Amino acid sequence: MATTVPRHEYPTDEVPETLDALAETANWILDEFADSPVLRPQALSTALTLAQQHCAVDPQAVKFETWEAWVTAMQTGSALFAAATAPEGGTVTCRIKERERTLPATGPESHLHAGTWVTCFYLAMICRDNDRLRRLAQVPLSLLRESEAVFDEYIYSWVEALQSFWLGRQDVGDKLVAAVDGTSPQALRHADAGLMSQILYPPLILLYRVIRRDPAEFNKALADALRAHKAYWTADMDRAASADGLVALGPLAMACLARDQGITVEVESEYLPKALLEYSWIGEIEY
């Protein structure tokens, strides 16, 4: 029997106008960001916000425009890391929104930190893009550290755990244990305790349940993760009014992984848009 976790109330009266404005901005940024150090940091965040905002009025992601927005966010983030890891002085050609775009090699950039990498990896898991997942799994940890962004050490172990899992390395368990240990209150120096416990930590446990191939415990942890997500995004009015909380990105990515690994997902929620979870749009867009 499925467990249901309803999404929190979100105002939708102005969403159509917001979507139009966001889409116009996102298209402009995508047309200009390749050669613009000013626009590159905005490209992924704008594309992801547009994808999340689509889910305000299309909570199950059944519209093509919603799927296209999620794919575009995935393509944009992956392109940024492809440019960052390209040989100095060279270029890379990346497909974004059905167009081939040429980006110059950038090397490390301040916005390409471990948090951005995790977001991009989640997006590629949701879109089931194995090629982009492989390339992201090969991004050197040193490049993420060179961003000079300030993070607790746990996130680097989490990056390594995801990379090791995807590449089939034997150290995935050790890396995951290190990541979990790094989320303890005693280990934290920078992350807010609520953000850690309700948003950042649950995907680690979900990956553990996938590795253990434990359907019952996975679904229990998934329901708990969505309840924690809901609690975080309803803690105050500003959060509740933010499109960032409409989709539980990390839990959704892990649910997609679990489903593809043969685990039946028995949790239903608008935080896990059904068409994204079930990969209903397969073949509709050339990646």
Score class of each variant (00 low, 15 high):
residue 4 T to I: 15
residue 5 V to Y: 04
residue 9 E to N: 13
residue 14 E to P: 01
residue 17 E to D: 12
residue 19 L to T: 03
residue 21 A to V: 10
residue 24 E to Y: 02
residue 25 T to H: 07
residue 27 N to K: 15
residue 31 D to L: 11
residue 34 A to W: 00
residue 36 S to N: 15
residue 42 Q to W: 10
residue 43 A to Y: 03
residue 47 A to G: 01
residue 53 Q to I: 11
residue 60 Q to L: 09
residue 65 E to F: 07
residue 69 A to K: 05
residue 70 W to A: 02
residue 78 S to P: 00
residue 85 T to P: 06
residue 88 E to G: 07
residue 92 V to P: 14
residue 93 T to N: 06
residue 94 C to D: 09
residue 98 E to Q: 06
residue 100 E to S: 02
residue 108 P to Q: 13
residue 111 H to N: 02
residue 114 A to C: 03
residue 114 A to I: 00
residue 116 T to H: 06
residue 119 T to A: 03
residue 120 C to A: 02
residue 126 I to S: 05
residue 135 R to Q: 11
residue 140 P to S: 12
residue 141 L to G: 09
residue 143 L to Y: 12
residue 154 Y to N: 13
residue 159 V to H: 05
residue 159 V to D: 00
residue 162 L to Y: 02
residue 172 V to E: 02
residue 178 A to F: 03
residue 190 H to E: 15
residue 196 M to F: 10
residue 201 Y to W: 11
residue 206 L to Q: 05
residue 209 R to S: 05
residue 209 R to E: 10
residue 213 R to W: 01
residue 218 F to T: 04
residue 225 A to Y: 09
residue 234 T to C: 12
residue 236 D to Y: 00
residue 239 R to Q: 13
residue 240 A to Y: 04
residue 246 L to V: 07
residue 246 L to F: 01
residue 255 A to R: 06
residue 259 R to T: 06
residue 268 E to F: 11
residue 270 E to W: 09
residue 274 K to L: 06
residue 276 L to R: 02
residue 277 L to I: 11
residue 278 E to W: 15
residue 280 S to Y: 00
residue 285 I to C: 08
